Computed example of a mutant assay.
Amino acid sequence: MSKVKILYDLGNLGKDAIHAIGGKAAHLGELIKRGIPIPEGFVLSTSAFERFINRSPFRQKIREILDKEIQLTEIIQISQTLQNFILETELPSELEQPILKRFNELKALVPHDFQVAVRSSANVEDLSEASFAGQADTFLCISSDEDLIEGIKKCWASLYSARALMYIQQMIKVPLNLVSMGVIIQKMVNSDIAGVMFTANVLTKDTNQVMINATWGFGECIADGKVDCDSIIVDKTSLEIVKKRIGPKLQMSVKNPDKGGTHLVDTPFKKQQVLCLTEDQIHKLVNYGIQIEKFFGGKPQDIEWAIERGQIKTLQARDITHL
């Protein structure tokens, strides 16, 4: 049996390794090589996912489903079937042991309150022609071995959600049996402020402006549309703030101390009607955005970021596909 590479440290591979670790991880690896601050972590390869499928007692049924196009009328039922097959398959020791070994090596570097994020990195994700954004699931604030394994399996299973299957067939238009999933395991950024930055104004299509959306706590609530966040427009050349809107930010996403993961809480009143970001933080974010755009051939970028104790971390960068 040929040796399969199960995992890589983030930064080992770059933008040309989408087939091996998926689009999100490949882009993050490229940013690490270029000196952009990224949370430390590792990525399970697409080969690890394929090995998992090959060890599943349901492998033949999974292959039979993926070898043909799924009709729209069947997609919800088939999605549930595929996801159940993934979740009911035990992770074989040949995968579990190296994953937990690397996870605990990462944990040893953090003296207390160690948690990770488990994030998808499909080989059809963050492509220049289709982003696959929001189709697969992310799991935050994971600290135990058991929750990590469960999070990985849920992340893999989300590749076969009804919305993901529809997106692959209708937007990406590749056979389902060619789609695979890497999984990123990164140290959590316990963010004080987080958000999304577009290195073009996606409302006016002005590529000479940067648009920043920001909120308190974790940034997931922006993508989910659960929080009315701050919005800032900046001129790329002068770094002048052209326009800013303070969103009410009535709630914020924070760690859930009882159940793990995250939950929404009411934002302290004094934070609701003030801008999250200082002018200095805005300028630093824009400068990172301009650098990242250059790294990816001058294509406008959709960048997720977070700030913890004043330190900016980039969580993701992908091409803006519709501008």
Rank of each mutant, 00 (worst) to 15 (best):
Q311K: 15
Q77L: 15
L165Y: 08
I222P: 10
K284A: 09
I21K: 05
K270N: 13
K205Q: 14
C221N: 06
L72Q: 13
I212P: 01
A20R: 08
Q60M: 04
K236W: 01
S56F: 02
T314A: 09
D224A: 10
D126V: 13
L250C: 09
E293P: 05
D230Q: 02
I320M: 13
K255W: 00
V274D: 01
G217F: 10
I152H: 05
T207W: 02
F269N: 11
E30Y: 07
K15H: 13
S238R: 11
Q115W: 03
Q71I: 15
T278W: 01
L165H: 06
D147Q: 15
K243A: 07
P175G: 07
K284N: 12
M171S: 12
G29H: 09
H263R: 09
Q97A: 12
G310W: 09
I36R: 04
D228Y: 01
S131T: 11
V242I: 15
G23V: 14
G261E: 13
L87F: 07
Q291E: 09
L264P: 04
M188E: 03
I233G: 01
S45D: 02
Y160N: 11
Q316S: 00
H283R: 10
V174E: 11
E88F: 06
T73G: 10
N177H: 15
K270E: 14
R163W: 06
P111R: 05
G134D: 02
A130D: 10
K153N: 02
N12M: 14
V179C: 13
I38E: 05
D266V: 09
E50K: 13
G217D: 08
I233W: 02
K313T: 10
P37G: 07
A317D: 07
L100Y: 13
Q135Y: 00
S121D: 07
N123C: 09
N190P: 00
L95F: 03
H19G: 07
H27K: 14
K3H: 11
A133H: 01
I184H: 00
D266A: 10
Q60P: 00
A200T: 12
V124P: 04
L250Q: 13
Q281W: 03
L159Q: 08
L87S: 05
G14F: 07
R309L: 08
D126A: 13
I149S: 06
T215M: 04
Y160Q: 08
K270T: 04
V210L: 02
G41T: 12
V210P: 01
V286R: 01
S180L: 12
